[in-house]
Design a protein around this nucleic acid. Structure first.
Lengths: 147, 147
DNA sequence: AGTAATTCCTATTGACATAGTAGGATTTCG
DNA sequence: CGAAATCCTACTATGTCAATAGGAATTACT
């Protein structure tokens, strides 16, 4: 029941892009340094975000990445599902529609548990956006400087 | 973010023992047949439940297993944590106490997300007992025969 | 006492996923 | 043209999952 580094790093990348947005394109190398992640590994992760259109890229010298839309448009759930695959706690629940992929789900008492669990998980990750995280971060930095 | 078969099977075993409780000891073979699980694999899973004292066993011919306590004493969370290990969605949160095992948790904005997620997960699995599942099962069987 | 049934214990295996590392092709700015 | 950056693909080491396998120890029944 662990979220992999791929998913966690992807969220941090999106937050980093939001936090360091100046309108300029941001290089992988800089993100990797700030986040203390291997830049080669980060490349692969950001490639997923790029293919999905979550970020825009410019190639070549002075190139880099920036968020495609406003931070408020990206939920943690979107990012995790994109990079991790489904967040469903059991395989029979990770269908694109809401159906159940199991031949004996009719007599499966535990299925209800997993459905409740899936709903609880979704409820958390789908209700936190990158903008929310950014706001929290700013609030914390404020506190830091005030003290 | 999947729950493994170990955890899922363990819950089903506990429910099976509760549902088929007649005071007699129940054999692994019978549980395996009813649940359609390899009995050799089930042996290993039930061994975990046994060592933790969740079930009582009698060896030898006519031996078997039964729940150690009332079904209401076992939550799904207890069983999953026992068999799966921690349910924390990130490694830095699976400490026995509530502490965080990460050197830069102070500046980790995403940690809050994982904490909320962990709380949501716990809230579901810690509030469903085997007795609850048993009740639902009985209700469903009732419906079946009435129709 | 002997035998069948059952739990108990440990080792092994094949398949797959994770978390990177590595190398170079391609594109673009200066 | 050359340096800097993204893009693309292959490889690898490690570990986990989900069993399978074989036999040792224990007990009830005849």
């Amino acid at each position: 029941m662990k979220i992999s580094t791929k998913g966690r790093y992807a969220v941090r990348v999106m937050l980093d892009l939001a936090a360091n947005n100046t309108g300029e394109y941001i290089k992988v190398k800089n993100i990797a340094e700030r986040q203390d992640i291997s830049d080669k590994y980060l490349e692969q992760i950001i490639a997923i975000l790029n293919k999905a259109g979550y970020v825009r890229s410019v190639r070549g010298a002075q190139g880099g990445y920036k968020l495609a839309k406003d931070p408020s448009k990206y939920t943690v759930g979107m990012i995790l599902r994109l990079t991790e695959g489904s967040l469903a706690p059991v395989a029979c629940l990770d269908t694109p529609d809401g159906t159940v992929d199991c031949d004996k789900c009719d007599s499966c008492e535990t299925l209800e548990v997993w459905k409740e669990l899936a709903a609880a998980i979704n409820n958390v990750v789908d209700n936190i956006t990158i903008a929310d995280l950014l706001e929290r971060q700013k609030a914390r930095l404020q506190d830091f400087y005030v003290i």
